[in-house]
């Protein structure tokens, strides 16, 4: 199972990087969303995969017996998903604001905060 997931993560990261290299802010955000999924999957795999062994302690027992699934990566991934969702929601609203106020979502054309130096008048 790990090799399949590793390849999937690799593909997701590759697609995400390609999207994030774009000058279009919206594409960058789509790339961020994909990268987030790839990272979450990698945390999931990092916790090692097990089959059909839920992390539940049997009735009457005080500790795990035998192999069991690692519950921690799920907690980490859940936290990361929530945070990623919050960040993405903000960023999408920002992209929309950029479209409304600046009239563009292309980062190359956003030169209001950092204006290009004024061109000197050519001597006639």
């Amino acid at each position: 199972m790990e090799p399949v997931l590793a390849i999937l993560i690799g593909v997701l990261v590759a697609v995400a990087v390609w999207l994030m290299l774009s000058r279009n802010f919206v594409r960058l955000l789509l790339g961020f969303a994909m990268l987030g999924n790839a990272v979450n999957l990698s945390i999931f795999v990092a916790g090692r995969l097990t089959r059909a062994a839920p992390p539940l302690i049997a009735d009457g027992a005080v500790a795990f017996e035998g192999a069991y699934a690692n519950p921690l990566p799920q907690a980490l991934v859940l936290t990361a998903i929530v945070i990623g969702f919050g960040l993405l929601a903000f960023a999408l609203v920002l992209a929309w604001q950029a479209h409304v106020r600046l009239g563009t979502v292309l980062t190359d054309e956003m030169r209001i905060a950092e204006p290009l130096p004024e061109k000197k008048e050519p001597a006639s």
Binding site: M20, L102, E114
Partner: peptide, 24 residues
């Protein structure tokens, strides 16, 4: 808005890298 786009973009990348490193 202009400054925030740049600030947000790079910080989102940094966040993802941090999380990936943590997982590794």
């Amino acid at each position: 808005t202009d400054g925030a786009v740049k600030y947000v973009a790079l910080n989102l990348v940094a966040t993802s890298l941090f999380l990936l490193a943590t997982g590794l």
